[in-house]
């Protein structure tokens, strides 16, 4: 039955599957990365509340770098689902 299901698929439907997998798997790494970055920043602000201004901006830049990876996955997903 499962084999039948696999054989019925057209190449386009594999593209849709790939798009879902691309963004789903691609979001894992950046999610962990952003979590670590923001968590550490909050820890630093908690220890030293006066430094919140100087911690916030580098954190935002670091988060942007981590987020870019998820954006690549998103673009790959668009390209795959647009076919």
């Amino acid at each position: 039955m499962f084999l039948d299901l696999l054989l019925q698929q057209t190449p386009a439907s594999y593209g849709t599957l790939g798009a879902g997998l691309a963004i789903g798997l691609g979001a894992i790494g950046p999610g962990i990365g952003i979590g670590i970055a923001v968590g550490k920043a909050m820890e630093a602000i908690g220890r030293n509340p006066e430094a919140s201004g100087t911690v916030f901006l580098p954190m935002i830049i670091g988060v942007a770098f981590a987020e870019a990876v998820a954006i690549y996955a998103l673009i790959i997903a668009f390209v795959l689902s647009g076919r």
Binding site: A64, F65, E67, I71, Y72
Partner: peptide
């Protein structure tokens, strides 16, 4: 390239 893709991807998303 990442600079361009980041802004584009965020706004399109």
């Amino acid at each position: 390239v990442a600079l361009a893709l980041r802004l584009f991807g965020n706004i399109l998303a």
